[in-house]
Write a protein that binds this DNA or RNA. Structure first.
Lengths: 228, 228
DNA sequence: CCTCCTGCGTTGAAAATTCAACGGAAATTC
DNA sequence: GAATTTCCGTTGAATTTTCAACGCAGGAGG
């Protein structure tokens, strides 16, 4: 895949870096270009965490399966975001999750040490990159807090509505799409799939919600409601 | 409270900083010494996140209460650890949780900008501090992943046992104490308190577990089992 | 020493989730 | 284009959790 500079400027790791400096910087960081088929494992739980991933296209998910077989989706990553960076920055050094491509995906891998330690060329933007990385890891932290707020609901309906309201708020629109199929959503909310389907149907009958596949619309919401 | 240098050298933010440099560094960072009574709110959800907290004594917890009244304990902080640092480093800028002293506590507050931007004295340890901060935020990330693994269990028993096994592993001992009372543990595991008590009693009857107040002991565990 | 309050364990009934199974629709594969 | 696989929605029974309430022990405070 040819990496467009436009794509990378939208990556939060390179905030404040001018586009013309990007190619040299990528070379300096030793970025490797990768591709993953849909459903394939990009990084395996328990393996050493050394790299920072940058998702260029597709979609990847952080998934943990416990000994009882419960599958949990911790987070869904969309372009042009980082993944696995928190694990590579931490002391632990082992991945607590599988990183899986839920769609065919292109991504870069960068050895985290190349980011965290000053490069041989003493490039002037390095401190900015580290600053950006700190902010990104902190933002991931916030996302995990938000997910915990969702799963803290004591019923399927409560979890689902909390999730959907947050999505609508982030999209700033009563219509929005989600990066999950039904099973994926159930695994993200930590509920049973069939129970989730049943609750969704109920909400549709009640006129609270409308949906088709992964496109949703919240009704009776004090918010703009536009189609594109 | 007099701040002993020994205490601060155990704070991960100052890893790699020599003890004699600490007092000057604290002054440079503008650290303010604070005290909180048991049960009092140190930082309020929704207020601007600007400071990094360093807990010197006592215990603080990150607590979120949703609109339905469900109380969730996201994390319990013990000395000499940081708190609220992730929120102050993130773009969001607002606290997603209440920070509450579960015991009478002493702590320091440091304006996060003083840490993240080079100080006027251009102190040579600043980059080390930022590096440490990145690692700490990443470690918090890991802790949240671990908590999610616990709450992913589909039953009270599963959540409880996952939690206790992790505690025993971290203590490297089948005997250990936890920083929660029953209600607190229930709020951390996201289960009902009475159901938790019932499950604990059952496990005790079954000979899997023994406990008194907040002291626990896992039986039949392939692990050393010593009384201090 | 007595009273008040908090935390803990128990119980029973109501409600919700989980689990297994099935049919249909849509997408994928050959 | 036909077969196959995957995804989705539904249902009913079994299992759990939730919720409200109560008694008791221990500590705090007057």
């Amino acid at each position: 895949m040819t990496i467009s500079a436009d794509l990378l400027t939208r990556c939060p790791l390179f905030d404040g870096i001018s586009p013309e400096d990007l190619p040299g910087m990528l070379a300096c960081l030793g970025a490797r270009s990768m591709r993953a088929d849909k459903g394939s494992v990009i990084l395996r739980e328990g393996s050493p965490a050394k790299d920072v991933g940058i998702l260029l296209s597709g979609c990847v998910q952080l998934i943990r399966t416990d000994f009882a077989g419960n599958r949990t989706i911790m987070m869904s990553i969309t372009p042009v975001k980082l993944f696995a960076e928190s694990f590579s920055c931490s002391k632990a050094g082992l991945l607590p999750v599988d990183v899986i491509a839920s769609e065919e995906s292109d991504y870069l891998l960068i050895d985290c040490r190349r980011i965290m330690t000053a490069c041989t060329h003493a490039c002037s933007f390095h401190s900015r990159i580290i600053f950006n990385l700190l902010q990104i890891v902190a933002d991931k932290n916030l996302a995990l807090h938000q997910r915990a707020l969702i799963t803290a609901g004591r019923s399927t309906r409560e979890k689902l509505m909390t999730y959907l309201l947050i999505q609508a708020k982030e999209a700033n629109n009563a219509r929005f799409s989600i990066p999950f199929d039904r099973q994926g959503l159930a695994d993200y909310l930590e509920v049973d799939r069939s129970g989730l389907c049943a609750e969704m149907s109920k909400l549709k009958k009640e006129g609270v919600l409308d949906y088709y596949k992964s496109d949703f619309r919240l009704l009776n919401l004090p918010m703009q409601d536009t189609i594109e």
